[in-house]
Write a protein that binds this DNA or RNA. Sequence first.
DNA 1: ACATTTCCGTTGTTTTTACAACAAAAAGAT
DNA 2: ATCTTTTTGTTGTAAAAACAACGGAAATGT
Lengths: 223, 223
Amino acid sequence: MERLEKYYNQIKNSPVFFGMNDEELRGLLECFNARVRKYEKEEMIIRQGDMISNIYLILDGAVNIEKDSYWGRRIIISRLEKNDNLALSFVGSKDVESSVDAITVEDTLVLILGYEKCTSMCQNACVRHKVLINNLFQILSKENIELIQKIENVSQKTIRDKLMTYFSNEAQKNHSNTFTINFNRQDLADYLNVDRSAMSFELSKLQKEGYIKYDKNHFELLS
Amino acid sequence: MERLEKYYNQIKNSPVFFGMNDEELRGLLECFNARVRKYEKEEMIIRQGDMISNIYLILDGAVNIEKDSYWGRRIIISRLEKNDNLALSFVGSKDVESSVDAITVEDTLVLILGYEKCTSMCQNACVRHKVLINNLFQILSKENIELIQKIENVSQKTIRDKLMTYFSNEAQKNHSNTFTINFNRQDLADYLNVDRSAMSFELSKLQKEGYIKYDKNHFELLS
DNA sequence: ACATTTCCGTTGTTTTTACAACAAAAAGAT
DNA sequence: ATCTTTTTGTTGTAAAAACAACGGAAATGT
């Protein structure tokens, strides 16, 4: 519980609890039996097939949402980080089991709320819950839009187009032509759904032709 | 308004209004300034760049959610039908403009609710609104999960794998090994993100090799 | 019934990708 | 600092896809 206190400010400022005062938030955390849990690197938070009844909020670290296609190929659906939520859509869809894995990329700290328990107890009676679900709706909307953007990414025809679309989006998010990505090459390849070595090759070609400049994970868009 | 009455039962049974009694629903429809609008075939309901402040519910017909990549290639993100909602995520994300087009595939009837107007008037005060947002949360969850499934589809390596993954999902949705799809060949290709002629070729090959049987848009999974 | 348009399947060619194998570089461990 | 492990870049080859072009089928309109 002390750990929860340590992160109280961050928790309070996260989108999930937007618009709540201290009293409401503390009440909510108690009602939802909030706890902080640490996961080691490469640990699974959620497995395909799990029933999800918790709300997960990443306090620190990074998590991959992945899916293994039936022949060993790994698909990275999204990379989640500090202040992101995990598997919200499976909380909202009753009786649907998770179709994905959530795997930590590094040591990760997660806030866990027992959503089901609280909602069944207080029904929709409490005010806090109303604010919460409003926030959840907005968060889910954002996630939805990001998934659409990801579909746009992987739907490009060539590796080059996938890379440039991805880079444009990153630059836009960062409000700058330079940005640092969190993926290593293999993860980026699995995210864009291409072969790593072919992607590496295309990266150097893009650099030689003057479209981008990069050093390790720091990129600059030139065109 | 008569038209609205004509569809009242269908509206009442749609997921958006789940759990509301007649009184609540009628109040809501009035408060949200509900109206029915007919769109012709190939008409645009939403364009890329639009700000969305309405809730759209398809009463009859079919709609493509599309995006044109900068070189004429069309990406079909999803196909929506009777009782589906349109562009919900852009209602939930304030100040975000639509990144996609919504285009009717055939003559289509849509129920439109002025979401913004009502929420700003009655704040979160009214009970109906609470039930509504709860429903919206669940609908968005489902959409989210379907987007993930779509990512899985287009992330398959070969055209064959994309087709078979798509067919499996359709069979599962239909609880049967036979099913009829609503896409024509070009649309299916744009949905799976492959070349139409190459896909046609792969379809016949799959049939010759005994994995599937099809006649026009009716398919059977054999394996 | 006929003409017109749209849709679908087939084939050959060119482009792009995946894959495998390896070398270089970087990161981590002792 | 040295050794080990992981990550990244490079190349050649085989597989797959995109593309273009076309003929036939089906649907639509008159």
